[in-house]
């Protein structure tokens, strides 16, 4: 696999939206270039309105670029064919309210020309994967936001694409759910599937992305491997457990004798996320609240 075709390549992409009635234009994306390699998880970061969603929509051929080009596995986004290998989860997805979870997946499978036993197996597999088996026969009109996000994710994976594009995949999902989605993304990565996602949840991006790009007002201001971007080269952290005070005193003394400088000694704090997860752990798996009632039949 030397020099494979990139999963996504964006070259000098610019998107200008005209502002109607006023003789002004809005530059949503300005001269953006980046590549996502197969098997890579790429995070597109940026504040609200920085052009993340616009970029992703152009990659999927939903919006036309003003100039520049985007390609998926070497085929131009303007070609319908380029979407053969990609699954997309739009931001705040809504689906047909009158379809059940299972029917929704069947519909998306059919328009990808799947059918029969293979499709049914794939649907079962995906419903299990996103943890919606208990809600398969319920209409989406009654789904919560996080459940919609999950069915959206399942829908994106229906035809086993080699690239998955996710616009804020964890928006509206509870911490346990968003950890599941994180694990799922890591799982995709293990299978060699490329992932391009946008987010402004930095902690999460830091956990899963190999590479990140930071957008600001449509411009790519930083881009590169995550490790390169965030490591502070001249600092080292030491984490001790059950250290007696004498040891700490010795360390201080040692540091003072050397050319280094001690910046900080502090107690590490558990993250709010971890606290939340630990205290809700028992009820987070398998949504027992919903599965105990008899709503499976309804």
């Amino acid at each position: 696999m030397s020099d494979p075709t990139p999963a996504v390549s964006i070259e000098n992409l610019t998107k200008v939206y005209p502002i109607p009635l006023r003789r002004k234009q809005l530059v949503a994306v300005r001269d953006l270039s980046l590549q996502v390699q197969p098997g890579q998880v790429y995070g597109l970061l940026g504040p609200n309105g920085s052009g993340k969603s616009t970029t992703l929509k152009i990659v999927l051929g939903l919006v036309r670029p003003t100039s520049g080009a985007t390609k998926i596995f070497g085929s131009d986004s303007s070609e319908v064919e380029s979407r053969e290998q990609v699954g997309f989860l739009p931001e705040n997805p809504y689906f047909y309210k009158y379809l059940t979870g299972e029917e929704t997946l069947r519909f998306f499978g059919r328009i990808c020309l799947l059918g029969g036993r293979a499709l049914q197996d794939r649907i079962d597999e995906l419903l299990a994967l996103v943890g919606l088996e208990h809600a398969r026969d319920r209409r989406l009109g009654g789904y919560s936001k996080g459940m919609l996000q999950r069915i959206g994710l399942a829908q994106a994976l229906i035809q086993k694409p080699r690239l998955v594009v996710l616009d804020e995949p964890t928006a509206g999902v509870d911490p346990a759910g968003s950890r599941e989605i994180r694990d799922l993304i890591l799982d995709l990565k293990k299978q060699g599937i490329a992932v391009l996602l946008s987010s402004h949840l930095l902690a999460q991006v830091q956990e899963i992305c190999d590479r990140v790009g930071i957008l600001s007002r449509g411009r790519l201001v930083r881009e590169g491997r995550l490790e390169d971007l965030i490591s502070i080269e001249n600092q080292t952290e030491i984490l001790l457990e059950d250290a007696p005070p004498e040891l700490l005193a010795d360390i201080r003394a040692l540091v003072e004798k050397s050319s280094g400088k001690l910046r900080d000694i502090r107690k590490p704090q558990t993250t709010l996320e971890r606290l939340f997860l630990e205290s809700t752990e028992s009820s987070s798996l398998g949504n027992p609240v919903e599965s105990t009632s008899n709503d499976r039949k309804s």
Binding site: G61, L62, R83, V86, Y94, Y96, F108, I111, C112
Partner: peptide, 13 residues
Amino acid sequence: DRTLYTILAKPVP
């Protein structure tokens, strides 16, 4: 409802 996005993001002309 943006269902159009999800449909046209599939290989549907």
